[in-house]
Design a protein around this nucleic acid. Structure first.
Lengths: 241, 241
DNA sequence: TTAATATTATGACTGTTAGTTATATGATTT
DNA sequence: AAATCATATAACTAACAGTCATAATATTAA
């Protein structure tokens, strides 16, 4: 079956070429501003050929979104493998979200775009994307459960609900730089401050109040957490005037 | 100027008729699934006539979004006028967001859709929508400042940053029923539980730890806050099995 | 009353794009 | 060398946002 094998490989390769070309374009322009013709031109194929490899534009877009989700999943898994208290894992996952947004802003933008309507729920890719995202949330939930067990996280929280609250907040706050940057900087804060202050804000909602295990953002630093900057002088200065 | 006046009124009325027709359609179908032809048919005018009243489809959509924002602004203003501690105002605003999402799910969906990309930043409506949303956030910020001043809210929080964190969280958590309902119910929770548990989760992040003023979600109830349900038996039951 | 003018409405049009189809090209098998 | 199969393409359709020349209607001026 050497020949069939080779053909299969070639087919996969063609598919990857198309995805790569589409990715380049979707990274630089919006969904509506990239036509199938554009993608065909970029990969040097006829438009109709693309339809041999992808059912439609949506599916092609979703395939790229899936790539992005995969990377996020790996980042979360890494956090989970660390030998640190539960609450630190949670903080590191939040930080991972932030880092992901810095490293892969284009994937993130596509993920958000995909999440917000207009994409058919029937598309099998949609289910897979939902599953990928769900996996990330499950990892976070497990970290929360660990934190409850080791006493670093409030015992009166439900791990599922809390994982939802945090995922949604992380998503909105740590990864929408493009959307909020101007407002934030108009108030004299950098985006990184905006992100790090969020952890100082949210920690009491998660942290167990019990003395023996109670942890603060500053305690996370020794485990690789670096989003701990205090409010800068610039802001303070602005307030005084 | 009686005649010019009447004509002006008639023009406004036509415009409103068009908006109403478009609203009916956008409430029942997605942006892409409503064509200008559809709207024209609904309002019994020619498509070209609509373009005499609205620059393009985007502007017409944005005009409806603005209606929705206006209502939200009124709800927030009402909360601000109550004579209650700052932290309770904040909780009531969160609850207002939840109620708004229940009462006007269609407006909310359109607001979200408008917020997520693809709409030109140059459109004057976009600026106005941003301003309307900004006003809501400023109201929340003032409530936070009041809470800091009256000792019910953590003094180490910046009112601007905190208002951003809360607005974004409210938005994501209290108003995306459509998006999360299935996941939540699959875990045995109702959407209302999901919302009310969020307040129990987030309160320690806001509430001042100081004894004299420290408040709990249960303390909010006497001020008209009703999102205080505990986790239901159904969930507990599920966990036992 | 009627002619000139301004406003509002429309049918027919253009340009663009997602997706389809009938046909062609080229490799693989018989 | 013929038959078969997979891959590629040019030409097409259908739908839709937005435009424009023209028509209908109301207002003003003579």
């Amino acid at each position: 079956m050497g020949i069939a094998d080779r053909r299969q490989r070639e087919k996969e390769q063609r598919k990857t070429e198309i995805i790569d070309a589409a990715e380049r374009l979707f990274f630089s322009r919006s969904y509506e501003d990239v036509s199938m013709e554009d993608i065909a031109r970029e990969v040097e194929l006829n438009k109709a050929t693309i339809y041999l490899y992808f059912k439609n534009k949506e599916t092609l877009f979703a395939t790229i979104v899936l790539r992005g989700i995969q990377i996020l999943k790996e980042k979360y898994t890494e956090c989970m493998e660390k030998q640190v208290p539960g609450i630190v894992k949670v903080a590191l996952m939040g930080q991972a979200y932030y880092q992901y947004a810095q490293e892969y802003p284009d994937y993130l933008q596509m993920i958000h775009f995909y999440g917000s309507e207009r994409f058919s729920k029937e598309n099998p890719c949609t289910a897979e994307i939902g599953k990928g995202y769900g996996t990330c949330r499950l990892i976070l939930r497990d970290a929360i459960q660990e934190g409850i067990d080791d006493g670093t996280i409030r015992a009166d929280l439900d791990p599922f609900l809390t994982s939802m609250y945090l995922m949604i907040s992380f998503m909105g706050i740590l990864s929408m730089e493009k959307k909020w940057k101007l407002v934030i900087e108009a108030e004299g804060f950098s985006y990184q401050q905006f992100a790090s202050e969020f952890f100082r804000f949210i920690t009491p909602a998660i942290s167990s109040g019990e003395k023996p295990h109670k942890m603060d953002v500053k305690d996370f630093a020794s485990f690789g957490f670096f989003l701990t900057e205090p409010v800068t002088p610039e802001k303070k200065k602005r307030e005084e005037s």
